[in-house]
Design a protein around this nucleic acid. Structure first.
Lengths: 223, 223
DNA sequence: ATTTTCAAAATTTTCGAGATTTTGCTGTAA
DNA sequence: TTACAGCAAAATCTCGAAAATTTTGAAAAT
């Protein structure tokens, strides 16, 4: 079972990075050969990933990588805004110095990495690190919210979001004004400005929604 | 697999009603005998339920019904408030007459049922129906929000909430002012009053949080 | 040329037995 | 009495193969 978790994590990583094509079939027998375990074990893992929303399952038709879906990406973005705004504000209220410190630390790492990537020509080997750091920054942002449930929901949504975005836009996020947006969020959070934090989290996450209809209720409240 | 889904639904029903005790072990071999399938099949189903948060899994130690946790119940309540407020407001904006009609219908059924239960002495045989109707009312409330993802998250949270509440308070919900609260929500929703709908959804769901610290950020906004 | 039929091939699902790990009991020593 | 091994029983996990189902592809019919 320890190896089962290992395989689970490896597959999850592949599904949230760029390894497989959307719609691609995931056959238990193929993965069994690759990982050196039985097909039943793979099947269990694929069921878990299906519950996570990272894999599609159809009765008698096996498992597939989800299709690219702009609609889905919009929905996931809205959920992230909802959960991260809420989690960030709660963290501001309850986090204290410890939280501020860890958020600053997470931002520093991410910021440093983004600068390195910008400097280079071919950042392919730094991409993995960037993904880890970006995720960690957003997780830290909500880490002091006091709700395991909220954090768990967020991690489910985040993984699906990453999966969709990865297929939708291979140029990734570290271009343009992404660095500034992360800094802006940190600034608002450290200032304990709840409304501003909400707005900046929203603006940061909504950057992929260009031209889309505003279907998030909180959006109208966020000025 | 059709039978697998059947077993999944049956187990889910048991876990969200009162069949098992918290902490109780769920042994694959026992369930296998009961459902007439293999232990591996049961194992798959239990893994799915574990991902849904309705069952706890520990490596090499099998599956258990989750313990009663007041903290968890509070967190789930907060998530419900967050998701249902958002979903209700979005539905108000996008639902149209069709949504209003179905919400009225759902409320009518629930209301009728609650009156029947109040009239009787022993409502045990109506309880099942009430659970279905209560769930349906809340699902209908957010049904026109336009986000499959939001609805899916909500259904996960709702099931866990029901599971926890069932163990925490066996007197159930149809006591006290529950009838009025549902009517209030319907009224606010039909009036398309977004702020009032948020407030009434909040008040309705927060009724179990008596004396608890207010850890939900939206709470302070909801006057 | 298109559709239908049917059997072979491929894939998915189910199953029970063997391997591994945990649990509970018993006896021994401090 | 308590603590700690050692051992037996029970439970869990892994696996490969049999059974059931779907897909494929070629021949026959329209």
């Amino acid at each position: 079972m320890e190896s089962e978790n290992k395989i689970y994590r490896e597959l999850k990583k592949r599904l949230t990075t760029d390894t497989y094509n959307h719609g691609q079939k995931l056959r238990a027998e193929v993965l069994r050969d690759e990982f050196g375990c039985s097909a039943s074990t793979v099947r269990e893992i694929l069921f878990r990933l299906a519950s996570d929303g990272l894999v599609n399952f159809q009765d008698q038709r096996g498992f597939r990588v989800p299709d690219l879906s702009p609609t889905k990406l919009i929905e996931l973005t809205h959920m992230r805004i909802l959960l991260e705004s809420e989690g960030a504000v709660l963290s501001i209220r309850q986090g204290g110095v410890g939280w501020e410190a860890s958020l600053t630390a997470a931002h520093h790492k991410l910021s440093h990495l983004e600068k390195r990537i910008h400097a280079r020509e071919d950042p392919t080997d730094l991409v993995d690190l960037w993904f880890t750091s970006e995720k960690e920054f957003h997780q830290t942002l909500i880490s002091a919210c006091g709700s395991t449930t909220l954090k768990h929901m967020h991690s489910l949504i985040y993984a699906q979001f990453r999966q969709q975005l990865m297929k939708a836009d291979r140029r990734f996020d570290f271009i343009s004004n992404n660095i500034k947006q992360h800094s802006d969020i940190l600034e608002a959070a450290l200032a304990a400005d709840e409304a501003l934090t909400r707005k900046r989290v929203h603006d940061h996450l909504a950057r992929h929604l260009t031209g889309q209809t505003a279907t998030l209720a909180s959006e109208s409240d966020a000025k």
